[in-house]
Design a protein around this nucleic acid. Structure first.
Length: 415
RNA sequence: GCGAUCGUAGCUCAGUUGGUUAGAGCGCCGGUUUGUGGUACCGGAGGUCGGGGGUUCGAGACCCCUCGAUCGCCCCA
């Protein structure tokens, strides 16, 4: 044990039904993203550290204590991407993708965050991601959310009766958000010493987060805390109303979550999370990592990277979490298994399986172990069709286990 | 980063208050049986009991450290 290397903490080797579930999530995402005409993009896995620190915010937990940062041989500080949005924004600016605005893009791949591993939480994890860049209209938010909603339905995680619900909030525009934030600080500062230790710290760094604290001591003061609605400008309110009426028109069910905030600094206006319903099977499977898809509008992000003000909205979802919810997917059986019951006929079998595969059928060769047990192994493996090569009375004997029609077509294929 | 539980063959687990050569089922390999079939029986390989140190005449069982997993907190997807 001490001699063989172990996998890095928080990384995983995915195999079998888990790998099938993972692939199912990605394939479904690819299909749905095309339905909504999102274009595929690929991003580097690492960027200059400043891409993330400037975009996400120095004080956020992600930047301040969860990034895999290192100096390369040229002395530059680089970071393994902890999320997609910052890198996509950087690509948008450095490649002049403004010419394609409004631009709908989608991607998926590994992300890295130095966190304590837990169920549904890994140090290398994978997300699917969708963004609409350069669209000020609330219709962009609606389209993006409609895609998320359809994806979850096609994965079988959500259905018409529920299972997963869209929790929706608005953080208002920059000014609304700042005014709300100031009011919250004032509200909570008055009772600072009655708050949890965590929240006393959050008061200075990230007061919005106090709102979704799970600590009872905090929740007493959350109920009568100032609401964002009191600080919303007319424009911000009109924007949110347009989003909600658009969602209703699109048939996307949602619920208002006044205390939903997001952890990253760049969010404005729409913020949302898809969360399994309380007590549902999905909620049980996920444990405390309950958000399966989250995102929002980030109209301020491009400026933080030195670009022109550019409205944008996007979401990401954890593939591992989605895979847990779709359940084990069985690996498909081979269409045909070719059994070699006499080793003298191995080349005949190889010739046959080559023809079968060239004909577009998946096929497995069963030619190891005790010859007498190979047929049983093929039956056990669960193939629809079996072709067995054996010697009978000194001559080659080919047997088919399949219905008449399949046998006929196999015989034709093998000539 | 904090707290709790756990870690025995490829997999699922058993191993009594610490006491002789560490077990079972499944899987794998081989043999016999059956012979249009997922049968039955027999045999075999495979473990320095996550790793390191300690207590003891003696440790898989107790103590310490370490690594990892799981469950909360935190954070987030």
């Amino acid at each position: 044990m001490s001699k063989t290397p172990q996998a890095i903490r928080g990384t995983q080797d995915i195999f079998g039904p888990d790998a099938e579930a993972f692939a199912f999530v990605v394939e479904t995402f690819e299909r749905v993203r095309k339905l909504y005409r999102f274009r595929r993009v690929e991003m580097p896995v690492f960027e200059k550290t400043e891409v993330f620190s400037r975009a996400i915010g120095e004080t956020t937990d992600v930047v301040s204590k969860e990034m895999y940062s290192f100096e390369d041989r040229g002395g530059d500080s680089l970071t393994l991407r902890p999320e997609f949005t910052a890198g996509i924004a950087r690509a948008y600016l450095s490649n002049g993708w403004q010419q394609h605005a409004p631009l709908k893009v989608a991607t998926h791949g590994p992300l890295f965050r130095y966190e304590r591993p837990q169920k549904g939480r890994y140090r290398q994890f994978h997300q699917i991601d969708a963004e609409i860049i350069g669209a000020v209209e609330p219709q962009a938010d609606v389209e993006l959310l409609a895609m998320a909603d359809q994806l979850l339905k096609e994965l079988g995680i959500a259905n018409e009766r529920g299972g997963v619900t869209l929790h929706l909030n608005t953080l208002g525009d920059g000014d609304s958000r700042e005014a709300w934030r100031a009011a919250l600080v004032e509200h909570f500062r008055a009772v600072k010493h009655e708050l949890s230790e965590d929240s006393q710290e959050r008061l200075e760094k990230n007061p919005l987060r106090i709102l979704d604290s799970k600590d009872r001591r905090d929740q007493r003061f959350v109920a009568d805390a100032p609401k964002i609605d009191q600080f919303l400008s007319d424009d911000a309110r009109a924007f949110f109303d347009a989003v909600t009426s658009g969602l209703d028109a699109a048939g996307v069910k949602w619920t208002r979550a006044e205390s939903l905030v997001r952890g990253l600094d760049y969010y404005r206006h729409t913020a949302f999370e898809f969360i399994p319903d309380e007590g549902s099977e999905a909620a049980g499977k996920l444990g405390s990592q309950s958000t399966i898809l989250g995102g929002g509008r980030y109209d301020g992000l491009m400026e933080s990277l030195g670009g022109a003000p550019t409205p944008a909205v996007g979401w990401a979802a954890g593939i591992e979490r989605l895979a847990m919810l779709v359940g084990d997917r069985i690996e498909p059986n081979a269409d045909v298994i070719v059994v070699v019951e006499n080793d003298d006929l191995i080349d005949h079998a190889i010739a046959a399986i080559a023809k079968i595969r060239a004909g577009g059928h998946s096929a497995e060769l069963m030619a190891t172990g005790s010859p007498r047990k190979r047929f049983d192994k093929a039956v056990k493996a669960g193939a629809d069709k079996i072709v067995a090569f054996d010697m009978r009375d000194g001559t080659e004997h080919v047997r088919f286990k399949a219905d008449d029609k399949a046998t006929a077509s196999l015989e034709k294929l093998l000539g």
